[in-house]
Amino acid sequence: MIRAVRLIGLFIRVSVQNFAAYRFDFFVRLFVSLGHLFGELLAVATVFSNTESLAGWRVEHMLVLVGVFRIVAGGIRMFIVPNMRKVMEDIRSGSFDFLLLAPLDAQFHVSVREFVVWRITDVVLGAALALYGCHKLLGTIPLPQVVLFVFMMIASFTIVYAVWLTLAAVCFWIVRIENIEMIFWNIFEAGRFPIQIYPPWMQWGLTYLIPVAFITTFPAASLLGDPVTGMSPRVPLFASILALAALLLSSWIFRRGLRRYSGASA
């Protein structure tokens, strides 16, 4: 266990060291991050210059949602996407064999070895925006809500990780599909706005079938603590069940894929 933590620390350290060598790049990336944020804020400004309420969400609520979306988008690109892309690349190039030769659990290894440190700008900007929006509405944010928010974000990232792991594992069966990650981005797109904009039947689907609601809407709602945004006492419970189930299912699929890759009888 300690060894696992130490290894993660090493991977992060290596990434940071190598990034520090490219200082100019950092400013360009920061600029791009700000650009994205600006675009998203322009979108919010556009919507709320035409209406006061978006399915019950007011502008401050939306700011929190945009912040959460940024955090998730940044976090995904910081430590999930780089790892999953490398898995898919390795399977295609055959370098995946080296992973199997290492005395380390394969799933753990493929999940932590890559780290893109500069994406933290998105996470920081998103967190700042979310806290600002919430503060505007509530003043000081009650601590239990912040704790709940952190918990919901962990659940959100777990679900996202599970989806990505599954998509990467598909490569064990269909090696050739290059942009399978588009499946995730398409689904993620639906999470840009509150789940309540969709017709009820679609809301149901996006909550229980493809749990987009738990990726952005519910974490934002938990920070706001406002029922209008969808927060209810059942949400954290569902989030934990869903996150756990997703993790177990995706891990199982990954291990089945490993067995197939190494020609173990199915």
């Binding site: 290894l7 991977f11 290596v14 005395p103 380390l104």
Partner: peptide, 8 residues
């Protein structure tokens, strides 16, 4: 370095 760490 990573290799050394992974292989303990």
């Amino acid at each position: 370095i990573v290799h050394g760490a992974v292989f303990g």
